[in-house]
Design a protein around this nucleic acid. Structure first.
Length: 243
DNA sequence: TCATTAAATTGTT
DNA sequence: AACAATTTAATGA
């Protein structure tokens, strides 16, 4: 065992099983897909590892093959604001990569994760080559815009149940995170970090949502039963209940 | 494959 | 924050 393996980001080509989790590869021509496949690099991130930092020049378009990441940014007061979690199948940073700017947020691993990266130049090459790829990126930008608007609404909500419900709905978004499917692998502690509540409160909310048949709580994960209801469900805060 | 043990996660106060 | 209960993962016969 090497003594300093943790200090190095071991990057390697993607395995077939990992390539299979990348949604946009399917829209490419065989030739385009082969070139992209050769350029994709994969790395393993340990909990707390930072994938990209605010201000750093964007060099890769990143995607989550497995695990769970957190997207956050630091405001002027130096406080950290968490935007969203990034479960498997999610690709992010296209806006930044598109303009060849520097990253506008930090991406940090919440748990052991496998992260794939497509070099910026290859990203632009695909934009010039494939209509399907353009369509994918455009849809991605649009979906994410909707998600950011939802995040602002979530922040205004005072009901913890509603916050948990909406945050979960975002993570179950099949367009942005096709790798999630029916079951989201996330611990209640991780969800608490993302939503900004205590684990105890998240535990209560999850059981409330389960009682309403919106989700099912499982060990180490959550199963979605009614995504539409999760998205639109309105909850009264404790204060409003007794008003 | 099965039993044992450690570790992780959940439920509760 | 602490604790007990439950579930999973790892180990070795």
């Amino acid at each position: 065992m090497s003594t300093d393996s943790s200090l190095y980001q071991r990057r390697r080509p993607a395995l077939e099983s990992e390539l299979a989790t990348i949604p946009w590869l399917a829209v490419l021509d065989p030739a385009q897909r082969e070139r992209a496949t050769l350029q994709i690099l994969v790395t393993q991130a340990m909990p707390g590892d930072i994938i990209c930092r605010t201000g750093r020049q964007a060099t890769y378009w990143f995607g989550v093959v497995d695990g769970l990441l957190k997207m956050s940014s630091d405001n002027a007061e130096g406080q950290t604001m968490t935007y969203t979690g990034l479960p498997p199948g999610g690709w992010f940073g296209e806006g930044t990569v598109l303009k060849r700017e520097s990253y506008r947020y930090n991406i940090q691993a919440l748990r052991r994760s496998i992260v794939a990266g497509l070099p910026v130049d290859t990203f632009h090459w695909l934009l010039g080559q494939s209509i399907g790829f353009n369509r994918f990126v455009m849809n991605q930008l649009n979906e994410r815009l909707g998600q950011f608007i939802a995040v602002r609404e979530i922040d205004r909500m005072n009901s913890p149940d509603a916050r948990v419900a909406r945050s979960l709905a975002a993570l179950f978004n099949p367009a942005l995170f096709p790798g999630v499917g029916e079951v989201l692998r996330i611990t209640q502690q991780e969800l608490a970090y993302l939503v900004g509540l205590s684990r105890q409160r998240v535990n209560l909310s999850l059981n409330t949502l389960q009682a309403r048949s919106l989700i099912r709580v499982e060990y180490g994960g959550l199963r979605v039963l009614d995504l539409t209801a999760l998205r639109s469900s309105v909850f009264l805060s404790h204060r409003e209940t007794h008003a």
